[in-house]
Design a protein around this nucleic acid. Structure first.
Lengths: 105, 105
DNA sequence: AGGTTATATAACGGTTTTGTTATACAATAG
DNA sequence: CTATTGTATAACAAAACCGTTATATAACCT
């Protein structure tokens, strides 16, 4: 149970097609930040800020591996179940762009 | 099943504490527009625009009764189940401000 | 150390959001 | 018809959003 204030803050984070798509990809498992840079037609700093926003909302966890940072859904977030419910209603992506193997921007 | 674009548009509409609270009130049944004006500390035009936004997103239906317009959740919206799932996670309001009896702004 | 790769931050600009006040429109009431 | 009540729209301002480019930081590799 959340206040309208709390929930609306999280919904604002979710209410963006790029972030929704990023989250959807993370439903399949951890994603390297660089894979998002590959997937979307926006700059690396834009990707970085989307990730920061989701991290600050508590929706993401990160794991550093050498120079790469891998992001995954935070299953312990009080909003995790909402995120999953919403993502389950989002169509899967046409192009799967997984560059975790090489991670070369 | 929706595209990330579609869903994010609806989430933008839901991602506001005033609108979430208005929707929550409509879960208890039809609400006169004037009751919202009473309930919230924002101007009547602001309320009107919130209602318009939700109407345009297909989330609301309206019924005119004399000079009063009553709004209710559109149960046939493709997003209705999402709305309900989200509203069920929103705390019920402390003050119930139902002014349907008199409707005097 | 010096170069390369991955990520984050800063500074800026255009667009969107959300409120305001003033005004218009619609329906009722006298 | 005129006044009142309920609702919507117009015009504006402050703040937030989301992109950009330039730059900084962090880690790796020779």
């Amino acid at each position: 149970m959340h206040s309208a204030e709390e929930l609306s803050k999280v919904l604002k984070v979710l209410a963006d097609p790029t972030r929704l798509t990023m989250l959807k990809q993370m439903q399949d498992g951890e994603q390297c930040a660089c894979s998002f840079v590959d997937c979307f037609d926006i700059s690396q700093p834009a990707i970085s800020r989307h990730l920061k926003m989701m991290r600050q909302a508590g929706l993401l966890l990160e794991r550093r591996d050498k120079q790469w940072i891998h992001y995954r859904l935070n299953e312990t977030s009080p909003f995790y179940s909402i995120v999953v419910e919403l993502l389950n209603r989002v169509e899967t992506l046409e192009a799967s762009c997984d560059c975790d193997a090489e991670c070369a921007i």
